Amino acid sequence: MAKREIPLGEGVLYGLYQNRIRRWLSHQELPKHVAMILDGNRRWAKQRLLETAAHGHRAGAAKFREFLIWCDDLGISVATLYLLSTDNLTGRDPEELDELFQIIGDLAEDLSHFRNWRVQHVGSHDGLPADLLATLAAAEKRTEHNTGLHINLAVGYGGRREIADAMRSIVKKHGDEGGTLDALAEILTPELIGDHLYTGGQPDPDLVIRTSGEQRLSDFMLWQSAHSEFYFVEALGPDLREVDFLRALRDYARRQRRYGS
């Protein structure tokens, strides 16, 4: 029988290299919150001549689950996954969107039964189907007392929309309490706005990772990422390997964070 050729990334040397990075990271300060833009699912499906983009989205969902395991095993506390933007809701084919809604719902259901993870939907409800919203709400309810990895599922999410919603929430609360505009101007601070974001009460992401070689935020966590570190991976989303993630963490650990200075 012919010996199977070992693909790049599966050999002994690869494993030793990956373990060496892990050992180095065990002595470093890791991010508490990692945000992930897993981009390139549609291109991945197209390159493989698959019939629909849904094949890529399913592969991306499976990779998200792997990514969360990698985060959890390293003790990272919070992970935010960019699953569906507000722009996607108006810029994608309705049939593709319907398939994507189902894939996201399946992912949320799966994650809510896995380990001791806590699942939270961050995003607007506008434009999302009732059955998906019900699935996301059920996942939140089922995991609300879990104490493990906190997972934010950014669905129907837009950074500018989030800031606008935060401001509306602040103004409404202030008005309901009988406050004046002058008084609101006195108390309006970045901290107050942060408390009213979808991720209110959570630490901002220390590290934002994006796959597929694209180097832009695409309206993702605009407020929260003001002092984040960014890392861009050439691999398409479904092709992301654990070693790529470990390299991102190694790069993060080597940086001197300046927090805007």
Rank of each mutant, 00 (worst) to 15 (best):
M1K: 07
E5R: 14
I6R: 12
G9R: 03
G11M: 14
L13H: 11
Y14Q: 14
G15N: 14
L16H: 08
Q18R: 15
Q18N: 04
R20T: 08
I21W: 04
L25I: 10
Q28T: 06
E29L: 11
P31A: 07
P31H: 11
G40I: 08
N41F: 12
R43Q: 14
R43W: 08
K46Y: 15
R48I: 04
T52Y: 05
A53C: 09
R58N: 10
G60F: 07
R65G: 06
F67D: 03
W70K: 10
G75M: 11
I76T: 12
I76R: 04
V78L: 09
T80L: 13
L81V: 12
L83S: 09
T86H: 01
N88Q: 11
R92Y: 12
P94C: 04
D98F: 08
E99H: 13
E99D: 14
L100A: 10
Q102M: 08
I103T: 10
D106I: 00
D110R: 05
H113Q: 13
Q120N: 14
V122P: 02
H125I: 03
G127S: 05
G127I: 02
L128E: 02
L132Q: 01
A134E: 11
A138G: 02
L149C: 13
I151D: 04
N152T: 08
N152M: 14
A154I: 09
V155H: 06
G156S: 12
G156E: 11
G159N: 01
G159W: 03
E162Y: 00
I163K: 01
A166M: 02
I170M: 01
E177G: 08
E177H: 07
T180P: 09
L181T: 06
A183Q: 15
A185Y: 00
E186F: 01
I187D: 07
I187R: 09
I193C: 00
Q202M: 12
P203K: 06
Q215P: 05
D219A: 05
F220C: 03
W223R: 02
W223T: 01
Q224A: 07
S225T: 15
S225E: 01
S225C: 15
F230W: 05
F230E: 04
V233S: 07
E234N: 14
L236D: 13
D239W: 04
L240N: 07
E242R: 10
R250P: 02
D251K: 13
D251M: 12
D251R: 11
A253P: 01
R257I: 05
G260I: 02
